[in-house]
Amino acid sequence: MNIFRFLGDMSHILSFVILLLKITQGKSAAGISLRTQELYMIVFCSRYLDLFWNFSSLYNSFLKVVFIACSSAIVYIIRFKSPQKDTWNPELDNFPIQYLIGPCAVAGLLINQDWTPFEMIWAFSIYLEAVAILPQLFLLQKQGEVENLTSHYVAALGAYRGLYLMNWVYRYFTEDDYLQRIVWFAGTVQTGLYIDFFYHYYQSKRGGLSRPVKLP
């Protein structure tokens, strides 16, 4: 464990807290992509199958349960709970996620760390996480303006993987034979997708005024 990875995990937890607060207190899922939340649920449920045999640390096992529980709760609330379910707009939030899941599944089959079923599923979850934010970014693009809490949610989510990139650099230089090309590649793509958002997020927050984040 190093400070970058710890801060990354805290940023990830913060993103869950912000989103859960928004949809439970704000009683609205407007501006939130259910598609992205469904992808995250698939990512965590598939990657953390090793909950039952990989006890590398209590910290990991605990957070795996937290992430599965939170992502499932968010999908449940937006899909089934009133009044949030009525604030979800299927016409707007209509990114074809099958075009993300399919290629990631093929990639997981072909490029993985071991030819075992779990390793293929694990690689699939790493690739899928890298692109899971796309439906959310498309939804924000369509709406042009980003609601304040939503902008903090996306920023925390982007920061989490950006901090993980720093963690991988740190581990590469401090540990022997540390090699994780799959997560390095996917994590770079994942963080890259946020660069445009971060630019607009920074511009809108720079003056200290909480001007709404505008996406062109």
Binding site: D9, N54, S56, N60, F67, D114, T116, E119, W122, N167
Partner: peptide
């Protein structure tokens, strides 16, 4: 033989 990869990160 190669030991299975250990995933020590989330």
């Amino acid at each position: 033989g190669k030991e299975p990869p250990v995933h020590d990160e989330l």
